[in-house]
Nucleic acid binder design. Structure first.
Lengths: 335, 335
DNA sequence: GTGAAAGCGCTAACAG
DNA sequence: CTGTTAGCGCTTTCAC
């Protein structure tokens, strides 16, 4: 563990007794080089353990091989799966991924966005933490292409990839009504978050479409996992009329289930439960939880494709992609 | 969305009518500058949306503000939580995090390691995908400090942060024996992975310590989630003597539970289940699953601290940190 | 087919 | 206190 500089292209050139330009050409396979020199360069690279400095390469060639991704919280499996899929897509195109998270805090989001911009990525793929998405200005000011995912911000001219939240929630709520539920509680993180707002709108629309006899209410529980269950529990304390809960978030689903268990409320007999986001463990809960499956990997693929498209045609019209979700019925919503 | 270059420090200097050095000094707060010039610089920065090019800064100042992390798979919540915690730690020290994943493939691991090294990070924190960990050479050759986490490689002189797998598994197995189980199946991903091997060794040691009357067996199910359940299911088909399963991986726990459910085997009555890794949903399965909780965030904190320590004292003796796990008893292991 | 030299954006050293 | 200059590691002309 001796502390020294990493070898540079100059070190390689000296050892191989060629010019730096030749080393560069050999490694990039850009111009044809005499076989003997190629051999000398390769063995010098090998013995020095040389790896080209990507930042220096970008500066000179003006070609970045890095993309940035900004998500609210990597500890949330939805975002983690998104980043995982995005990294795969980026790798396929030969790009590295710089990951940053905002912690659902608009101020931190701005800071992190600035940091990403500082790396001069080819583009940034972001899941904003609020509707204002002021962080966005940092990307546009620096002329870095931006793809917005999952939560559509107020001021939309940008490439957007999201799920059809409205329709998914509409279908989910309709299913509950059709199963006989007349009073449904939507458990939201924060209604001002666009995707959550869209889901709520879908529920309201379903209620309106179904007719006068159904009623819905909403409960906002925030995005801090620990705080959710007490809020739900306390709400259940006050009300007894609802017969179904529709959780609009994976974390909220966990909290709902916990609150119901804690109070000994039988699912689905006394209370049905439907949640946004589907995970394998939902097959194994007692009872298994009905869920709306979001196509996370596809979202990442589309986001990457949107960025690639933007690079090809920088001036083309921003495109909005809406992917559809799938309702997975299990026992928590009865038969 | 007009395509243009991001503004450089030269653009700022021209607009503020000062030298580039002054801009640099103002932004870094390095030397004292006349208030009027400070003002001019700030307003130029503001109006241009200037963000310094971090790569250029590093090249000149020889001070990197990026660290790399290499994990097997971001889609696995264990690794995702690790990266999430690591990013927080890095952010606190003002570092960005470059994330790469190896997909449990040693060849890809090498490629990704080389890519990380290409960014000239201050260090790389890696969870190797196998015992050989050949990828490691790329870091050492380039003189990039390495912290190895979770899975201790064969050739140990490096800073290491891991969990006391042996003791945790020993305690877990002992608990099963004490509850009366005499034939326990360990469900491993791959015994050659060091942490898994250590866990298995702990189980064997517990069996030896408990006495002749207990017997253990092992089943390797690999690391591809889809393949696990069929393997377990088929194994259950052939054997009926065991009364407890000890899953050595979070993914395997899910597969075990699935296989047991699928075959209608009652837990814990016909089969007890204990798993490595604890998640909130394990409270909600039917029945709730007993688990060994790994301190993921602490591992990340320690890994970051190890890297920081290595930077302070590059030549100090490599340190091995072992954190302890916690046994969380739930109904899947009976009363 | 090869090498010398310029320059990407930035900061450290030095000069005024 | 401010500006000029050199140079980090690399690629890209442009000579030869």
């Amino acid at each position: 563990l001796i502390h020294r500089r990493s070898p540079s292209i100059r070190d390689v050139a000296e050892r191989a007794e060629v010019s730096m330009a030749t080393v560069s050409n050999v490694l990039a396979g850009r111009r044809s080089v005499a076989p003997e020199l190629v051999e000398r360069v390769h063995s010098a690279v090998e013995s020095l353990g040389y790896v080209a400095d990507i930042a220096a390469r970008r500066m000179r060639s003006n070609q970045s091989t890095i993309a940035g991704v900004l998500v609210p919280d990597l500890a949330n499996p939805f975002f983690a799966l998104f980043v995982a899929a995005l990294e795969k897509a980026a790798l396929r195109s030969g790009f590295d991924l710089l990951v940053a998270s905002s912690g659902e805090d608009p101020e931190l989001e701005k800071t992190r966005m600035r940091a990403l911009v500082g790396w001069r990525p080819i583009g940034i793929i972001a899941i904003p933490c609020d509707t204002d998405f002021e962080a966005r200005q940092h990307a546009t000011a620096a002329a870095v292409p931006l793809v917005v995912v999952d939560r559509v911000p107020n001021d939309p001219p940008a490439d957007v990839v999201a799920v059809d939240n409205y329709k998914a929630a509409f279908d989910g709520a309709m299913m509950l009504f059709q199963k006989g539920h007349r009073a449904v509680l939507a458990v939201a993180s924060d209604l001002r978050t666009t995707n959550i707002g869209e889901r709520h709108a879908g529920i309201l629309a379903a209620a309106a479409a179904f007719g006068d006899e159904v009623e819905t209410s909403v409960l906002e529980v925030g995005s801090r996992p620990d705080a959710m269950r007490p809020i739900i529990s306390e709400w259940l304390n006050r009300t007894t009329t609802i017969t179904a809960m529709f959780s609009l978030t994976n974390l909220a689903t966990l909290a709902c289930f916990g609150a119901l268990m804690e109070r000994g409320i039988l699912v689905p007999k006394q209370m049905a439960l439907l949640g946004f986001d589907d995970y394998e463990w939902m097959n194994f809960t007692g009872p298994p939880i009905s869920a709306i499956r979001q196509p996370v990997s596809e979202m990442a693929e589309h986001a990457w494709a949107a960025l690639a498209g933007r690079l090809r045609e920088p001036l083309s019209q921003p495109r909005v992609t809406r992917l559809s979700c799938q309702l997975v019925l299990r026992r928590s919503t009865g038969n």
